[in-house]
Design a protein around this nucleic acid. Structure first.
Length: 373
DNA sequence: AAACCGTGGGT
DNA sequence: TACCCAAGGTT
């Protein structure tokens, strides 16, 4: 158990423990020190308001959903594009889901896009098109979990809430040298973060914690000398802050394989289809393929039509969250009037921009040099 | 409660 | 190369 915060060890340490028995910090981390640092070093981000103001709740919502498990750099262009297409929640709520999915294509975790759309509709239906300034009501919305509800509460409404993301987990686990591994330590870290949150400027405080984690208290080699909380940091006092957060070991990543059917009509159109409503890449566009499994399938059993197949050299490699995929590609060139089988459609490369093509499928198309000219 | 759900960049 | 990591949520 035990964050060092509650484990006083005043007497002589045992030899075995010497290394990590560095003195506990004498001072508690002061929110004011972090806020002062934030006032000088806050990042300028597309969704962030000017200093001293709260951002538009829709902007905060949109950015927070996009930023789930996704880097600031990757989100930038998507955020700008979404805001241009759908300037308000109402616009987003009225958009066709297909357009939202195609705009999201490439960002990953596509359930977020489906939930984003559902959430926009719910905000219009339940709250008259205004995000509620209420953490519990936010939590009720699709796609908004404990982190995002707290983040919107704090950042958009300056309510006292304590979002805990990966950055804040890291900062807090170091401040208090939390030895228990994640994810088991989440409740303790959450409590420590909440206890740290000030009554004044809780929104800036949350963003300051994230900025600190992103720029100073980084995973590999934290820049402790630049940190406003260097002195009260227990991990720093111990001498090896990068040891935190402690994490449970990860399992093996299984391998799967499949065969994709790249069928090209004489006019250059490619045969595509939409994936099932649930599961991996739900409702996204795909190149037809065999099922993806641990063992190879018989191509003829799964090909959408009979054709003269030509194997393309090499293969497409793609790593998903929980498995690694190797896709070999069979190509067939078919006559201009070949009808699309049930559940399939012909799409010319000029129309790819309007398709919800995930990255793995763009790789397959690129592998066959489709859409290069 | 543990599995599932993407992708690109950094080391 | 192989692994880690990024403003997590849902089932």
């Amino acid at each position: 158990m035990t964050a060092r915060a509650t484990a006083a060890k005043p007497t002589a340490p045992t030899p075995a423990a010497t290394k990590r028995q560095a003195p506990r910090s004498s001072t508690a981390p002061a929110p004011s020190a972090l806020l002062a640092w934030y006032d000088r070093h806050r990042r300028r981000l597309p969704w962030r308001a000017e200093a001293g103001r709260t951002a538009d709740p829709y902007h905060v919502f949109l950015s927070e959903i996009m930023l789930q498990q996704t880097t600031v750099k990757a989100v930038g262009p998507y955020f700008t594009d979404f805001l241009r297409r759908w300037p308000t929640v109402r616009h987003l709520a009225e958009a066709p889901l297909e357009e939202v999915l195609s705009a999201w294509a490439g960002l990953g975790y596509y359930a977020r896009a489906r939930n984003l759309h559902a959430c926009a509709k719910a905000v219009v239906a339940r709250h008259g098109g205004h995000f509620p300034a209420d953490e519990a009501a936010l939590l009720d919305l699709p796609g908004i979990g404990p982190y995002t509800a707290a983040a919107i509460s704090a950042i958009a409404f300056d309510l006292k809430a304590s979002p805990v993301d990966g950055n804040i987990e890291r900062v807090v686990s170091r401040l208090y040298a939390v030895d228990e591994p994640l994810p088991k330590s989440k409740p303790r870290i959450k409590a420590l973060a909440a206890a740290l949150t000030p009554e004044r400027r809780p929104g800036d405080f949350a963003q300051a914690m994230m900025d600190l984690g992103a720029t100073i208290c980084t995973p590999r080699s934290p820049a402790c000398p630049l940190c406003p909380w260097m002195e009260p940091c227990t991990a720093r006092a111990e001498g090896d802050p990068a040891r935190y957060p402690v994490k449970a070991p990860k399992g093996e990543k299984p391998k799967r394989e499949g065969i994709a059917f790249l069928i090209v009509r004489a006019d250059g159109a490619v045969l595509l289809r939409t994936r099932p409503d649930k599961g991996l890449l739900a409702k996204m566009t795909e190149v037809p393929s065999t099922p993806w499994g641990a063992r190879p399938e018989t191509p003829a059993t799964h090909a959408p039509l009979a054709a003269r197949w030509r194997p393309l050299p090499g293969a497409v490699e793609h790593v998903f969250t929980h498995f690694a995929l190797t896709l070999s590609v069979l190509r067939a060139d078919v006559p201009a009037r070949t009808p699309a089988p049930d559940g399939h459609r012909w799409v010319h490369p000029s129309g790819f921009d309007r398709e919800a093509l995930p990255s793995v499928m763009r790789k397959v198309l690129a592998h066959g040099r489709i859409g290069e000219g």
